[in-house]
Design a protein around this nucleic acid. Structure first.
Lengths: 344, 344
DNA sequence: TGCTTTAATGTAACCGGTTACACAGCCCCT
DNA sequence: AGGGGCTGTGTAACCGGTTACATTAAAGCA
């Protein structure tokens, strides 16, 4: 591709200012004294030549990229927007750069991840975008990593930040049982590879167990955190006879969209006939019809916290190993509570 | 910050494989013949040492970063999610990296933009995040730039991709006038610095003029493409007497949220008393109450197209100067059309 | 006054790749 | 048989910064 016309280098500046390159470099980095007079001369020359230090050369010399990376397995959902927002805020506060890549560890041949020690000072890894093997490799070279929405493999000590999944799910299911008397609660599972999915399922089982309700396998179906998958599968569940349910936990808010539609198209009322609750408190959830009762996950805060943690690592400051951000249940209408309870 | 423990270099590989660094480099880049035997030896050594070429060194040598940048003025709205998605798809197709930064040209002292020739091969500039002066600087050094949601300053020939703003707005306003007989249509202006805002306002004026309606300045208020600003200002407009209106174009869908709320809180019905229409067809719009009639802007496609264009520039292929992606009006309920018309 | 510090600067090696140039050996062609 | 072309390889310069080390002059101190 394009070869950039060679631009002005630090040597040009040095020559014009009649000083050595070292002095120019010192002026640039303010890391050694430079006389007032020389400083001014250099500054002037830099302006005249409109000199811009080449980041890549500096990076090579210092062995630092001033860049952190974020690996996501995709950008399909709106979930990553607040996440990215939180991360970006911290990154720019530190005057760093942010490299964003989507990547899924699945393609076996040459697991050449787009982000790593080659091009960043540290990375944020979302959920299962990297597999354990890749994490091990990074640990071996002591590369700073912070995991997002997944815990660290036991033997690797990688800091992670995620949200309270299990107890939050237990609480919201408990709400369906205790407050609304629901006893046949369907569960839409998220992608199995994502820890969030598995923990939410545990929370669901916890709640049922605690109330002496038996877990009916037929009521546990795939939602995949996906509107369309959820729609299809809830529809299928509704059409099969004998699979009556009076509530559904949709796994996340994305899937709730599909679930709501399937239920309403079947002529059932939400929440009267079937209560629906989600997880995430996505941007959409208050606007669904009826407004969705859900678990509020502080996604932007997750992003901020993870980024902060990574910067701690970069500065070799202590970093919390495990951060579990609290989640709240947000009562709206879809669980059966009166509309009065908060219109967020 | 952390100094990475010096890792395996190409010279180590060369030594272990008993060849020169040039040969290793050739093997890596497949840009010159290397004998079968030597290739295998090198490959083995690379595996043994788990050698990873340092991107930054390669970048310095080749004067290419394999990275493009995206400058946004902020990430507050959900708008940038589909945009980013489109861009990322193309970037990863080209095996490039994507650097994302938020930046606003306003802070005068040292307008050191985070993205530029120092660290990328080309950049995508959203709306007014860069000012004209900065664009001029980039043009001077022939740096590849593609503008998003703004046209090129006349004298600079920078390719840009944006959406049809003016005629789309004219059409949707015309719909309010002709189909629904609205004659007092309020207009929520977006941020003045954004071209989109200004063009939409022109479209609004076009439509009114074409129907012999006079533009009442009192009905043109600030919405700032912001839910809360829109809420406040619509509320204010409703409380002032004499400022009756029977429809409002909210500038974008974000502002529509606030407008709807303000109108409904004032006890007016949408669309019966006041019709509301937006712009963007954001993820939320079909879920608003009532579902929002709006202009569908192909944001993800804007991202893809802009990225493609930038890669054309990088490869010195011809690139379309002006790309104006078509917008459609999406009829839902909030304009007054019957609910039947598409539940998207 | 003589010695130690400190400020200010220069020289040149270094970061880890790429690549221009040189060259050896082999094949093919006239 | 000799020369042109191709294959495969090595040497070393180069990309544009940083920085260890050396050096000089001025300032501080006993």
């Amino acid at each position: 591709m394009t070869r950039r016309s060679s631009s002005v280098t630090i040597r040009d500046v040095a020559r014009h200012a009649a000083v050595s390159v070292a002095t120019v470099s010192r002026y640039l980095n303010q890391n050694a004294p430079v006389s007032q007079e020389v400083s001014e001369r250099i500054q002037q020359v830099m302006l005249d030549l409109s000199y811009k230090p080449l980041a890549v050369a500096r990076n090579l010399a210092t062995r630092r990229t001033q860049t952190i990376g974020l690996v996501l397995h995709n950008m399909h959902t709106d979930f990553f927007a607040p996440l990215l927002r939180g991360i970006e805020a911290v990154v720019s506060e530190y005057q760093y750069n942010l490299l964003v890549a989507t990547y899924k560890h699945t393609s076996r041949p040459e697991n050449l991840s787009p982000l790593g020690p080659q091009n960043t000072d540290g990375i944020l890894v979302y959920a299962d975008s990297f597999n354990e093997e890749q994490l091990i490799d990074l640990c071996r070279v002591k590369f700073p990593v912070v995991l997002i929405h997944r815990t660290s493999p036991a033997h690797l000590k990688i800091p992670f930040v995620t949200v309270e999944n299990r107890t939050a799910t237990r609480k919201i299911i408990t709400h369906l049982i205790e407050t609304h008397g629901r006893r046949s609660i369907a569960f839409l599972r998220g992608p199995f590879e994502q820890e969030d999915s598995r923990l939410r399922e545990q929370g669901y089982r916890d709640a049922l167990d605690a109330h002496g309700l038996i877990v009916k396998p037929a009521l546990i179906i795939d939602g995949e955190f996906d509107q369309f998958v959820a729609y299809r599968n809830v529809k299928k569940l509704l059409s099969g006879e004998g699979q009556r349910f009076d509530a559904v936990f949709t796994g996340d808010d994305e899937a709730a969209i599909g679930a709501l539609r399937a239920i309403q198209e079947a002529g059932l009322r939400v929440p009267e006939d079937v209560a629906v609750v989600g997880f995430d408190d996505s941007r959409l959830s208050p606007f669904l019809n009826p407004p969705l009762t859900t678990v509020c996950a502080p996604t932007e805060d997750v992003g901020r916290t993870a980024a902060r943690l990574l910067f701690n690592l970069l500065q070799e400051q202590p970093a919390e190993m495990a951060t579990l951000l609290p989640t709240d249940i947000i009562i709206r209408r879809s669980c059966g509570c009166p509309a009065s309870a908060a219109m967020n």
